[in-house]
Amino acid sequence: MSVVLRLAGFSVARAAHRIVRDLDARIEGPGLVAVCGPNGAGKSTLLAALAGHLPHRGSALLDGRAPESGDLAYLPQATRVGAGLTVLETVLLGRIDHLRWTVRPGDIRAAVEALQVLHLAHLAERRLDRLSGGQQQLVFVAQRLVRRPRLLLLDEPTSALDLNRQMILLEELQAYLLARNAIAVVALHDLSLAARFAATVLLMKAGRLVSCGSPAGVLTRETIEVVYGIRAELLTASSGQTVVVPLGPIRGTGREAPA
């Protein structure tokens, strides 16, 4: 049976401000769920609350049950990490719940496999603090994947990646999700990437859900205009993929121009 994530009346308040308001959605997996919207729409807050790092009201159920910590893997927005651990040691920490005093071969093998999936095996012996921001970001995705989660929550995992690594990450992520019947809720700024890789798009604005559904249904000229305040054109590339081309901000509507 395919995995289902159900949000009902999901709200998050921070210091008396409601950042996320009454989200209702039924998302059928497996696959990638792109959370899109302008800055301040509540994407990061939604992910942190789904991960249990912020208190929320309403419910988020994975296959009808509240997800346990073993089902979940949450990756916050990338910040520079200065630890001198090796890449392999870092990924190994993803299995922290299973680690004993002596590391068992199975744990190391799982970490190595996670590195291989994201084409990082050649970095295994390098120190984390000597890597570039993009390399660190991928290492942390590998660390979360080694936890074998059924619900991944990734906050802008492509923000520091070059085009090659964006493709590697999203393709391998898709393959993982299909193989393990899992869902990844991913905050994405790049609408073309969302159109290409997401099974479902959640479009948010000011804490509310504007639209939820397949990329083709959600990402239209009208919704992009309303949510982002820009004129945009949707093209179909010769490969059949949809590309969102931003043309320019809409002025004089009293709407705040997105940064």
Partner: peptide
């Protein structure tokens, strides 16, 4: 608590995300 403290070297947010 060696493993938890090692995870904390990655910073508070990562350690928390790993369930510490």
């Amino acid at each position: 608590e060696s493993w938890k403290l090692t995870a904390l070297r990655l910073g508070e947010t990562h350690a928390r995300s790993l369930g510490v």
